[in-house]
Simulated assay, not measured.
Amino acid sequence: MTLNTLHIASIITIFQSILMAIFFFQNKKSPRTSNILLSLLLLVFATLVCCSLIISLRLGPVHKIYSRLVILFGQAAYLVSPLFFFYIRSLLNVNFSFQKRYTVHFIPFFAAFIYTFFIIQTLGNNNVWTYPGRFLILTGIMAQNILYLIASWKDIRSYGLTLRLFLSYIDNSRLSWMRYFTVGYILLWSAQLQLFIGWDILRHPEWCPYGLSLYFVTAFLFFNGILFIALRKPESFYHVQKYQSSVLKQEDKDLYKDKLIALMNDEKLYLNPAVVLNDFAQRLDIAPCSVSQIINESFQQNFRDFINKYRIEESKQMLVQQNQNLNILGIALDAGFNSKSAFNNAFKKHTGITPKEFKKKSSAFSS
């Protein structure tokens, strides 16, 4: 057994990921669910890098136990994409909690683990690349990654496509961290994909050493990037409760939430372009900071987005009216916006299209 630079880098990566998993698990400055998911992801990544290291060091032919361990624990790859999906969701929503029904996402892992547990009892020393069912299992892993990437993207889109909208919920450091982690995840998956294509599809074993080397380099850079971010921008992983000193009880929040909705629907305060937080505070007879808290926690929006959402719905009704003679500027002013540009930006932010495009689609649909 000979260790080269990549092997040493991989060993460092494994220890780094384990240490970071312990650190994040003990981190009490950010939501518990998010910490646990990230810790589990790092441990799974460490397991997979370790399996690849055993293959690269050719320990399988030395003793049967190494081949069995690689095959068995290699099924941990089925854990990566669902853990990634739920971790991204926990970053988007700091109130996210893992529920029992989510465990169905991990059925493929348990199924693959149980299957390979029985299969490895009959294998020889060097069956890492050729054990029965390998192609089907790896195809499932590749397909699973694609499906969960799509699902994660849909989750991100549900919170908005622009940086401005994301900043309403997540500060800039957390957004940068989410992007880094997503790109790193895709690169690691791509490194696994080229191994799968090279060996299992095209049957070119000469690709494997280069494929493993690329995987080691990618993993090393990815985990050191995480370490760098943790040291330079620790706030990326912290979340301080904004209203931890609030005196509002949950029943109070629910009561004022209903009153707030009634104000918006009945009195339509949003039609006033000069409306501010204090106007709502006076109507509800509570402090402005309490109004802000209710909007942030009950609607997962800031004050401006909350107001603009009602204005957008009002403008939609005007845009679809065929007998409406108002132009876009007139509709913007009537809906509570103070300029056409502000209306266009808010409308596209909430709907993904401009008012003009919405009106054109509505006209085409009605005709």
Results as ranks from 00 to 15, higher is better:
residue 67 S to Q: 11
residue 187 L to Y: 08
residue 108 P to D: 10
residue 80 V to W: 00
residue 299 F to H: 09
residue 320 V to I: 15
residue 212 L to M: 14
residue 6 L to W: 11
residue 9 A to Y: 12
residue 152 S to H: 03
residue 242 K to M: 11
residue 13 T to P: 03
residue 224 N to A: 06
residue 108 P to S: 07
residue 15 F to A: 14
residue 253 K to R: 15
residue 28 K to Y: 05
residue 189 W to L: 02
residue 276 V to P: 00
residue 83 L to Y: 10
residue 11 I to L: 15
residue 171 D to T: 03
residue 208 C to H: 07
residue 179 R to F: 13
residue 332 A to I: 04
residue 73 F to K: 09
residue 43 L to C: 15
residue 360 K to H: 12
residue 83 L to W: 07
residue 319 L to S: 05
residue 338 N to F: 13
residue 337 F to T: 02
residue 133 G to V: 00
residue 219 A to I: 01
residue 332 A to V: 07
residue 354 T to S: 15
residue 258 D to S: 11
residue 86 F to G: 06
residue 185 Y to H: 11
residue 175 L to V: 13
residue 365 F to L: 14
residue 204 H to I: 15
residue 128 V to N: 06
residue 24 F to G: 01
residue 258 D to V: 05
residue 300 Q to Y: 12
residue 147 L to D: 03
residue 298 S to Q: 15
residue 1 M to P: 04
residue 32 R to N: 08
residue 55 I to Q: 12
residue 341 S to Q: 02
residue 145 N to C: 02
residue 219 A to M: 11
residue 209 P to C: 06
residue 161 L to W: 08
residue 40 L to P: 02
residue 117 F to P: 01
residue 9 A to M: 10
residue 132 P to G: 04
residue 229 I to R: 06
residue 70 V to L: 01
residue 111 A to D: 02
residue 358 F to Q: 06
residue 337 F to R: 09
residue 111 A to K: 07
residue 119 I to L: 05
residue 23 F to H: 11
residue 309 K to Y: 12
residue 345 N to F: 10
